[in-house]
Design a protein around this nucleic acid. Structure first.
Length: 832
DNA sequence: AGCACGCCGACT
DNA sequence: GTCGGCGTGCTC
């Protein structure tokens, strides 16, 4: 019996399976998806079994190098066969290594940790040491130390004997010490002391026999007689306010046993969730739910786009669909953007489905995450709610996958494998014959286009559940403000709107998509602009710390009073960040209470929730922040939403800039007036005539989409063309340009050959491919490496990814040892 | 990615 | 004449 194993080495040369013999004792355990430890060259590595060959004929060809598997690392394989197959699909689609795809599917706790241990070799006898072998005193000491411990981890040994690497090395070389390698998990399973009561009869007997002064023991026995089941020691002592010694005394008397038992860490252990019932659906909701339900019952694959305006009650449709899914004995995955995975969100799911829900989000510790994951793998839960990576939940019978706020950029992973959770969800759903529900008020153009043209089914919900009206939106032209002599960052409209809320004691949300204080620092005399020395990007001024910071690599330097070039003192700070807005608010409205939320104030764990809770309980008037304040928040007393500068995203070098601006404006506008109080929105901009701003002001998604689709079609962007972005980085620019030209040239040649071999029809949708570049990336240098990129645009039935793979492969061969880095992003979200 | 093997310069 | 530099190539 052989196993094909993908080993834990993300490199081109090892990006294939290696064959291993499965020893007799492992045959009943090993499965496709098993995690194993295998010898690989001189090392021992973790790997994943991707295939098993049950060949009985084990005659190996002469000189065959095949080795046996060392160990199967889990009783239950961490991956299902379906996920193993999915990893193959992923590596083809996103051009990543197979192992990278596999690793992204398992919790970090199962990432291998490699450990080397040293022990004294058998045969190295006590007397020999120091005499026959002529060891140094240090070495004798080391050997004695190891002999005393049995074996010692290499790193620990070095800590104990610092600077003695050579002494240890020669001991190993001479065969006195032996080195073994171990593949370990990163995380131990949590063990909890648990009290197991003996039979009730024994307990009652002992209770009667207790001396009168044994109050605590009496209490414990009474409790255990009433609740005759195992209980955690810690829970028992807290509940009854007794000490562990009293429990131990009862253990000695034979009333109970205390065992260390593997347990799940439950991050919600001390939270109680109010159970909720299904709400009555509106007719729109009912219609959407009915159709989803029908597909769940038929068990046939489909993708729905559930387009509902903010406040139309999408979540209730999700909840009832999940209920139906569970009733069909299937499992459900719910993806939400990381930022909206708040306790309130979790509560809605836990409240409805209780213990059947596992929650996966980034705030969990590795251990907690692993425990939630095990509940999924073992079938203890039927629903998982989580951010992007929860799409890999190891369920075996998925009926429904929901992606809320489908248009969110955070569903795209920015490092390898650069997958999009939406693609993964659809691929998995095909396999399980499951339904996918993509929910959004402002669907991405890709999704909307597919719903309009072909494969997705569109469900619409246009009414707000509580009958609340969409808020009135005022668009303020900041150029007019300037003409009228208003040089402040608040227009007259916004100023008076804020004033009014303060008087009425209502709350407001202000959005500015830039953190820090000033966005760039320039010398008025010579034009010098403070830049990061490692990244070609201007530094942002942070007033609190008095530092200039790079938002890409974290570089920081002290603020400047004098120009470093011309020594003039005409250093000025330009642009506006959240810090500056906060300062101005406090200056203009004395006594105003502001909560600022951005990466800088929410770095600390749990601070995000802390701020929101404070704001919800009306301890502040203003919630000021970057886009993180725009998503999914729902505060009854917010009646004003102000966008300080709607153009910040619009000016980015990104073909999705208009789409993102429209989505952001629509989302924030939806924050106002969701309850009884009517809402008002003020959007400040220098380009009030831009269609992304005007359509957002009219809450007109379709108007926006029509215009934007036309623009995309004209310029050859998604959804009409697919993109592949190839980024090359190197310290040396000429070499980089040469590499880029080689790459682009190769790709163009490949396309020409392909198109010549096909009979090209002159149809609208005939396959087509364009190659652009090399050009400098929008951020031309990061961490001292220059960046150039090539862009492939293509449409139709054409294996562009395959061509890119081949071209990059060739480039790597031609330029290997030159430390050229190649990054490939299929369907990029960002053009950086 | 590591790690071993192998071929050339600065030392006892 | 040996130790060790890191270039090259392989890992079932």
């Amino acid at each position: 019996m052989y196993a094909k194993v993908i080993v834990d080495v993300p490199a081109k040369q090892t990006d294939r399976s290696f064959d291993y013999i499965v020893p007799e004792r492992m045959r009943r355990w090993i499965e496709i998806g098993s995690r194993v430890s295998v010898p690989f060259g001189a090392r021992k590595l973790q790997g994943f079994v991707v295939d098993i060959l049950r060949e009985t004929d084990e005659q190996l060809p002469e000189g065959s190098k095949i080795k046996p598997i060392e160990e199967v690392l889990d009783i239950v394989p961490p991956l299902t066969r379906e996920l193993v197959e999915l990893s193959e699909w992923m590596s083809g689609k996103y051009l990543c290594y197979r192992i990278t795809a596999l690793q992204s599917m398992i919790p970090a706790a199962l990432k291998a940790k490699y450990e080397r241990r040293l022990s004294v070799a058998r045969g190295a006898e006590q007397e020999e040491i120091g005499y026959q072998l002529m060891l140094l005193p240090d070495q004798v000491e080391i050997v004695q130390y190891i002999r005393g411990k049995g074996d010692v981890e290499s790193e620990k040994l070095l800590e104990k004997f610092p600077g003695k690497e050579d002494a240890i090395k020669s001991l190993v070389a001479e065969g006195i010490l032996e080195e073994t390698q171990v593949v370990k998990d990163r995380m131990a399973k949590k063990k909890v002391l648990t009290v197991y009561p003996r039979s009730s009869g024994i307990l009652e007997e002992q209770l009667a026999a207790l001396p009168a002064n044994a109050q605590s023991q009496k209490q414990i026995l009474t409790f255990l007689i009433e609740n005759h089941e195992p209980i955690f020691l810690s829970q028992l002592t807290v509940k009854l306010n007794v000490s562990a010694s009293a429990v131990k005394a009862l253990g000695d008397k034979g009333c109970l046993t205390v065992k260390s038992v593997e347990s799940y860490r439950d991050p919600f252990a001390d939270r109680e969730f109010k159970t909720t019932r299904a709400l009555k659906l509106t007719s729109e909701q009912q219609e959407a739910y009915g159709l989803i339900d029908q597909y769940l019952r038929d068990r046939s694959h489909i993708v729905f786009l559930l387009q509902g305006v903010t406040g139309s009650g999408k979540t209730e449709v999700y909840l009832q669909s999940i209920q139906s899914c569970i009733e069909q004995c299937c499992e459900a995955i719910v993806l939400v953007p990381e930022i909206s995975l708040t306790p309130q969100m979790v509560e809605r799911f836990k409240g409805r489905f209780g213990d059947l829900v596992a929650v996966l989000h980034s705030r969990l510790s590795h251990g907690e995450r692993y425990d939630e994951w095990r509940k999924i793998r073992s079938g203890k839960v039927k629903v998982v709610v989580g951010a992007r990576s929860a799409v890999f939940a190891p369920f075996t019978n998925i009926g429904l996958i929901i992606i809320d706020e489908e248009h969110e950029a955070s569903y795209k992973q920015e490092d390898s494998p650069k997958y999009h959770a939406r693609d993964i969800a659809i691929e998995r759903a095909k396999h399980h014959r499951a339904a996918v529900v993509l929910g959004s008020a402002t669907p991405s153009l890709e999704t909307f286009y597919r719903a309009e043209t072909s494969s997705f089914r569109l469900l619409r919900m246009n009414e707000r559940v509580l009958g609340a009206r969409l808020p009135k939106v005022e668009i303020v032209d900041m150029r007019e403000e300037l003409k009228a002599g208003n040089r402040s960052m608040f227009s007259r409209s916004l100023y008076s709107a804020i004033q009014q809320r303060l008087e009425k004691q209502e709350q407001m949300v202000l959005l500015l998509n830039r953190r820090g204080y000033s966005t760039f620092v320039m010398c008025r005399s010579c034009g010098y602009v403070a830049q990061c020395p490692h990244c070609e990007i201007s530094l942002t001024y942070h007033r609190n710390s008095g530092m200039l910071r790079c938002h890409y690599c974290g570089y920081a330097e002290r603020e400047k009073r004098q120009c470093p070039d011309c020594e003039s003192e005409h250093i000025r700070y330009f642009g506006t960040g959240t810090q500056k807005v906060e300062e101005q608010l406090c200056a203009l409205f004395p006594g105003i209470r502001v909560i600022r939320m951005d990466v800088d104030t929410t770095a600390e764990k749990g601070s995000h929730e802390k701020w929101l809770t404070q704001f919800r309980s009306r301890q502040a008037d203003v919630l000021l922040g970057t886009q993180m304040v725009a998503k999914g928040l729902d505060f009854p007393y917010v009646t004003l939403v102000g966008v300080i500068a709607a153009d910040t995203i619009l000016n980015l070098p990104d073909f999705r800039a208009a789409e993102k601006t429209f989505q952001l404006l629509t989302q924030v506008a939806g924050r106002a007036g969701r309850h009884e109080l009517p809402g008002e929105v003020v959007i400040q901009t220098y380009v009030p005539e831009h269609y992304s701003v005007t359509y957002a002001g009219q809450h007109d998604y379709h108007g926006f989409v029509d215009t934007e689709l036309r623009a995309r079609k004209d310029r050859g962007y998604p959804p009409y063309f697919h993109l592949i972005l190839i980024t090359l980085t190197h310290e040396n620019v000429p070499l980089l340009i040469k590499a880029g030209e080689t790459l682009a040239g190769d790709l163009k040649m490949m396309w020409n050959e392909w198109s010549r071999s096909e009979s090209i029809a002159h149809a609208e949708d005939r396959p087509l491919m364009h190659v652009y570049g090399p050009v400098a990336s929008p951020i031309p240098r990061i961490k001292d490496r220059y960046r150039f990129q090539c862009m492939v645009k293509y449409r139709g039935d054409l294996d562009a990814a395959g061509m890119v793979r081949q071209a990059c492969h060739r480039l790597e061969l031609a330029m290997n040892k030159d430390k050229l880095q190649i990054g490939i992003d299929v369907d990029p979200q960002m053009m950086m």
